[in-house]
Design a protein around this nucleic acid. Structure first.
Lengths: 251, 251
DNA sequence: TTGTTGCTGACTTATATAAGACTCGATACG
DNA sequence: CGTATCGAGTCTTATATAAGTCAGCAACAA
């Protein structure tokens, strides 16, 4: 049987001017399946050989596609066991998305206390940041997060109500929201864009964080993107950086 | 002639417990050549075929090694022309190592004015941060950097005098220090670790930046690492983030 | 418990084709 | 004669396939 007959991918090989490499098409198919939760987080994908047979390409091409996605933290390979869908473990969340570390570089999971949780119509700014239609309903959660028992961060989390129905309603919010999003709503956060500034604490913030009014705070403005690249969460954190620093790697 | 006879790499194949993949060894050899400035920045490496022949491995193995190093921004590939040693261009410096952007996300090269330049013995902290022997000589440069004509950043750059002899002596310091290091001293900065805090402006800083004393500033503490992973430059920048923000990508 | 067996990914080599970039000579045109 | 343009040839990297060996892991059998 001819290979092309099995092929799900309309490569047109290299002859035509298609110019989209096979491995990129394979990557796109797998990415779409991840978005559709075709496999569950933590579940093993079919073996490279099986995927290659199904898609009508060679095992080496599948390997390249999978490697690229492993580099993007979408998949995890375990020799002898298989290739798995990435999970938002505590550890992963801590290293990828929580960037306040102690002076010595140590990382601690914060302890949060929700101070308010409301749903209302989105403001124009919220619509713009979260790419929502005007008048869309949103949910905002405000928290105070403590590190080593010290209130250190004041948090405001904003999400679309249509994407996260009932969020904050009956269920208690866990510490790791991203894992919650993945487990409860099938929405996987893969990337975030952060924008950081130095600001002065408002009197309310100063009180919540036991600081003098006007004390310098680090403001982290974060838009979190889901697997398909859409903005899903807007989070503004204001942090006391006397005992902790925000870290970033460059290059 | 047997392949193994030509081989510069003592793989021991996979039979023994060596467990170091061939491509990793190739990578290490090329990395060492980069450190030794075996090739000049901007110069083309030998073709994959030539490298493969020289090292006694297949072209595919060389390709994997080179791809990995391209992913690390050490090399640049140009189809039809060759693989090149990365250069610290303005553009690259701006995107990789300068992270203050305007509210609209635009990036501008700052204009710097050196306010002081001195050499003296390193303090214990400087020794620790730059991994120097006690009593080593260092050079510090202080600058005020302006964006769009507004003084925005107060900078303190510290480097070892033994690595950068005569720096700041007769030659005028250019805007892009990293390119200068690469061009004049053969030292290539590839990575940086940044640690960010919110602080209050000192009276001197406030005056230099035309701010009220005690105004919140963003402090960026950066250790820059060279190709071989050694800390080479310590830079502390204090920034007015009223018109600009510090950006970071996560995930 | 221990050893075997069979699955998986990890690594290496080989081969082939496509496409970008450059050289250089033939050719056409003023 | 001088010049511009086209195209073949030959470098390069980019993509794709195939075949094989090795190593980690788990389940099963002895």
């Amino acid at each position: 049987m001819a290979k092309a007959a099995n092929r799900k991918i309309t490569a047109g090989k290299r002859a035509s001017g298609a110019a989209i490499p096979l491995y990129a098409q394979v990557e796109e198919i797998i990415r779409q399946r991840l978005i559709d939760n075709y496999w569950n987080p933590g579940e093993a994908l079919p073996s490279e050989m099986q995927l290659a047979a199904e898609l009508g390409v060679s095992q080496g091409t599948v390997r390249k596609a999978l490697n690229d996605m492993v580099a993007e933290n979408l998949l995890v390979r375990r020799q002898g066991r298989g290739t798995f869908v990435s999970e938002h473990t505590e550890r992963r969340a801590l290293f990828l998305f929580f960037n306040l570390v102690g002076e010595d570089g140590s990382r601690t999971m914060p302890v949060s206390e929700v101070s308010s949780c409301a749903h209302r119509k989105a403001t124009p700014e919220e619509c713009e940041r979260l790419d929502l239609a005007v008048g869309a309903e949103i949910i905002t959660v405000q928290r105070v997060r403590s590190l080593h028992g010290e209130p250190t961060i004041v948090d405001r989390v904003t999400v679309s109500r249509s994407l996260f129905p009932n969020l904050g309603g009956d269920v208690k919010l866990p510490e790791n929201l991203y894992r919650f999003y993945q487990g409860e709503y099938g929405i996987t956060i893969t990337k975030a864009q952060e924008s950081v500034r130095a600001v002065s604490a408002t009197p309310e913030e100063a009180e919540m964080l036991s600081l003098a009014p006007g004390a310098p705070l680090l403001e982290i403005d974060r838009i979190s993107l889901s697997l398909d690249g859409r903005p899903v969460e807007w989070r503004v954190s204001r942090c006391n950086t006397n005992q902790h620093t925000y870290v970033a790697e460059r290059g």
